[in-house]
Simulated scan of single mutants.
Amino acid sequence: MTDLPFDPIQLMREHPEKMHIPGGLLTKQGPQDYVGGVPAITGTLFFNDAHTAEVREAICACFDEYEVIAKAHLTWLWRAEPPEGPDKFVYEKAPSMRAMIKRMNENDLVSFTYVSGKQPHDAGDWEFQVFGRRGWEAKMIVRGTSALRFTMPLLHVEKNPAAFQAMFVSFAKRLKALHGYGGQGLVLSAPRESDNQPFEAYLANMLNGLDVGEPVGATRSAHLGIKTVSWLTAVNHKMIEKIGGLSAIRSELPMDWFALYDYGAGLVVQAGPKPEGAPADQPKPARLVLPNMLFKEVRAPKVSLHYASKEGEPRLIGWGAEQWLQRFDVPEDEVQAYKARLLDEPKLTKATTLPDRL
């Protein structure tokens, strides 16, 4: 099931904008006539209290900001378990998010996924997804957190080298994020996610820098720690204190390669000038290994990535999921060598960082 008519790594390197993955690839039924996934730069933030008016307004404000650049590209809105109305809208005909949220009570699920595919089940590289737990769940804490994910096309980020960082930090500030991450990822078909996870698992074995798993599953353990480090990694003040404070971050992550941004409830760490795919057949990038080792202490012990395999198709579950979480781990006695290797990696530039870095 892993014989593909193209080399995904070569396509990602040379023509990522052409990599529209057929739906259902690597499943028993074979490729289907829709777009199952597209590569993009994705940012995910975990936060609490999505049942409150204050945080719901913050969610709306995040979408307002996203719409400024994405409005022309959005095509459909999907909702899970809406308290009223359909679960799917043509984007242009949908009520505003703020109007729909105002009609919800605290125990209604906050679930909005704005997509940019031609057909409603097509994946697109502009997407805004928010999952906010119902009030009764949020108050239990052990049920998990809420999450927001937004994406931008690879070429948009390449042409606007600080745009993604600016939005990620802005959203983290609005949501008072617990933690989060941003970098290379796949946007999967919103209503057919399970059928497209096998290809994501396949590609993840080739690209260590690729985010894996949908945000909703990750919320179940987000109260226990971070899921991963990436090009951008957000950590709250409690986590920073646990790993030794700001001085430890500055000591371990030199400012020529790492930028720090204050988002109020914590810090965002930018590792290098652009997102890193980190091909598995090449040495691990020091700019991902070093923050991984620094924040390893505040990593969640287990994270849900994929649904269970139905017919033997590849999925990142169980041992495979554990290995993915540990993909940037190295023995402690090798950390110094990675610090030396960092000297040969791309440095940050004024164009690739925000002006208000610490």
Results as ranks from 00 to 15, higher is better:
A50P: 11
E332T: 06
T228L: 05
P16R: 01
N292M: 08
I240R: 07
N205L: 12
A163Y: 04
K118S: 15
T233L: 06
H223W: 14
A166E: 14
P120S: 05
E241K: 08
P314F: 12
T2F: 13
L294K: 01
R98T: 13
H121F: 15
I9N: 06
T228S: 13
M255K: 15
R220M: 12
V169T: 04
S221A: 09
G182M: 05
N236T: 05
G135T: 12
A53I: 14
L11K: 02
S146D: 01
Q326I: 02
L316G: 01
Y91F: 12
R341T: 12
F63W: 04
E65V: 14
H306C: 04
L224N: 09
W126N: 05
H223V: 02
A300E: 02
M12N: 01
K159Q: 13
P254D: 03
P31Y: 08
H156T: 10
A340V: 13
E276S: 10
L4A: 01
E127T: 05
G213F: 02
M100D: 09
R98F: 06
S221I: 00
A123D: 00
K173A: 08
A337C: 01
R287E: 00
A166Y: 04
K302D: 08
V216L: 14
L11S: 02
I317T: 15
